[in-house]
Amino acid sequence: MIGEHVADTLATEPSAASDDVASSGTATRATRLLGAAALVGVAWLAAFGLGFSPADRDQRESVRILYVHVPSAWLAYLAFVVTAVASGLYLFRRSHALGWDRVAGASAEVGVLFMGITLVSGMLWGRLTWGVFWEWDARLTTTAFLFVTYVGYLAVRGLGGSHQQRARRSAVLALLAVLEIPLVHWSVRLWRSLHQEATVLRPDGDVKMDGLMLFTLFVGIVAFTLMYAWLVVHRQRTLAAEDAADDAGLDRALAARRAEVG
């Protein structure tokens, strides 16, 4: 919605302000370095995950899915924690800086992406290892709720209104999610404990993990964290540009109206 607005602004009236937005880009020297490091990390992950690391004794080749699944789950949780912290900083600081709001929004977008990857990769792995795509386990169910909750959060960010209005609404929602998710997890765990015989489908080989497998997982987490940082920095900058274009469009409209009247 905001994106269309920017496109409109750029198309109809190429003034100085929108030229700045269009031409400067969002990369700096530091983010290019970060992006390159993320790329190298992903290449390493591919090499270790698909090539060097051995197949698992029980799970065989399907264990390689976990090198994507576990890092993306970790990343999604990190992203949602960052969203909550940035929302808190926005809401409780006197300045109500929109910068924190944009960090929260950018982080949530990336988090939803990684949570989606977590769910899909987890289901594929589950089909191969457990024989079913979905198991009504507390952790799986909570993850699905987490995903839907942050899809809702992103929808609230798209509601419109002023930037401060958007920031306040979404910050409250992000903090409510911190309240909601433990409650959902707790209740679902109680629900399962009464209705399901002990979960037999847990992978139990985790404790004695092969050294190379552990290293591959570690590479995955580092690579995905770099990628996350890179995505959030860029997304936060494009969000800032969108807000600036929004404001510039409003200023121009006001000026035009004043010129008409005067």
């Binding site: 839907v148 909750t149 809702g152 929602l173 409510l176 909601e180 707790w186």
Partner: peptide, 10 residues
């Protein structure tokens, strides 16, 4: 509904 239904699951 999107916001409310996940929250009231407990």
């Amino acid at each position: 509904p999107l916001l409310l239904l996940p929250v009231v699951a407990p």
